[in-house]
Design a binder for these strands. Structure first.
Lengths: 245, 245
DNA sequence: CTAGGTGACTTACGACCTCTAAGGAAATAT
DNA sequence: ATATTTCCTTAGAGGTCGTAAGTCACCTAG
């Protein structure tokens, strides 16, 4: 009982009943209220009781929708992941006639734009690592996280297939690094060979790491506006992937 | 009253009295217990009551030492900062006969070694940005954070004075970036000019960002051992700073 | 059309947390 | 020897999480 969105509709084949629609509406309201609390009063203010109070229902009622505080946060975070992913996909598809390179850059800029426009939400995304040991592997958040990771990866794969960028030979890589890259290359069905993966992961670390430091205020001591810094990182990414813009 | 370590000793000139020693001992035990709880049971388990219980005193007694939960966490985090800083300084001074470059690399390696050996403690360090708006500017943690930031900066300054590394001319920098770099250059008393600062901050973002992603499990999806990745970042740093090792 | 099952919600409760208030006991200062 | 400071206690107000048990309305199957 009360496992959240597990039971979305009563029967697979049926049309959603009145009750189902009610439940969906309540779930949506819970998400919206949770987000509002997060944005306006910060993460510690997001409490089962506070959300319920804000909605005009009483505390324990929320347990009919989510098993507890963690489940609620997980579900809402999955929604954030989806929103971020959608923003990136939209940027990618906005100008199909442009070359792949500039669409890739647009995707990255959309990622940063969403993150800086929604720092509290991005904080939850970041605080919820995709692969910490001891998290149920099939949770909604896991899936959303994987889909997020794939938005950029897929574009780089297409780029690699169409117009390979310079990548180190596996022999030139340190053995331990090479083994890890080979393993991860398999886990993405070999769509990128280890050398190309190394280049891609380097770009990912650079971009995502910078974004995390920005949103978590780790660079406030030196910068007030990281726009030019991010653009510089994008130029480096363009060079590493030999983009034609 | 109960402002923590504000009143370290009764009178400046006197020898520490019995009571002062007692108080210092209790403060040390509080820190040790807090850290034990953090390491063994995680950040949410660190609670005023839990710390007191673990020490065999009753909850409110802790308020004679710290004004509340935040003050306690702040003070303990400052201690972590100091320990990390000390580890880095020790690595820097361990082999004074070696060239500056390899001592700088040793400092960086010591930073990562401490962080990976004490992930929970580093989590608190990272979660406590040095310059978020709305923190008392003179708190112990602020000072410890600044001292930490200076360990690497000072070495780079010496390097720059002794054997300047290649840096972009200010004219070549984007105007907004240049303005920020000039401002920050002033805030460190001009010990590095904007161009050199740009190179240094780029290295810092690369290293510290990678470390944060590692400790916060943002790279578990691809890597199990980030040693070679960090070493590669260090090689890039060596190239950017034109180190002689 | 009625009767049972299910879902949504309520109040009541126990355990824990933060932090304040008021008072006693012990060490120190005068 | 007395006054003061310091440390610690218990009591308690107000908040949180989460469970238990009961009520009411709706849906659906007979």
């Amino acid at each position: 009982m009360a496992q959240g969105t597990e039971k979305a509709e009563g029967r697979p084949g049926r049309a959603p009943s009145r009750r189902d629609r009610q439940r969906q509406a309540t779930l949506a309201e819970i998400h919206a209220t949770t987000r509002k609390l997060l944005v306006e009063r910060g993460s510690p203010a997001v409490t089962i009781n506070a959300v319920a109070r804000e909605m005009g229902i009483s505390g324990p009622a929320l347990y009919h929708y989510y098993a507890g505080h963690d489940a609620l946060v997980g579900a809402v975070t999955a929604g954030f992941f989806q929103e971020l992913t959608a923003a990136m996909e939209q940027a990618r598809d906005a100008a199909p006639e442009r070359p792949r390179g500039s669409r890739l850059l647009a995707t990255c800029r959309a990622m940063r734009a969403w993150a800086t426009a929604h720092p509290a939400e991005f904080g939850w995304i970041f605080a919820a690592p995709v692969a910490p040991p001891g998290r149920e592997p099939d949770s909604e958040r896991q899936l959303a996280g994987h889909r997020f990771e794939r938005v950029l990866l897929d574009q780089v794969v297409e780029l690699w297939n169409e117009r390979p960028f310079p990548a180190p030979e596996p022999d030139g890589l340190e053995p331990s690094l090479r083994a890890q890259l080979e393993a991860h290359s398999e886990s993405i069905d070999g769509r990128l060979p280890p050398g190309a993966l190394h280049v891609y992961l380097g770009c990912w670390i650079r971009l995502y790491g910078l974004l995390c430091m920005e949103v978590l205020h780790q660079l406030d001591f030196a910068f007030t506006d990281l726009d030019p810094v991010f653009e510089e990182a994008l130029r480096d990414l363009g060079a590493a992937l030999a983009l034609e813009t």
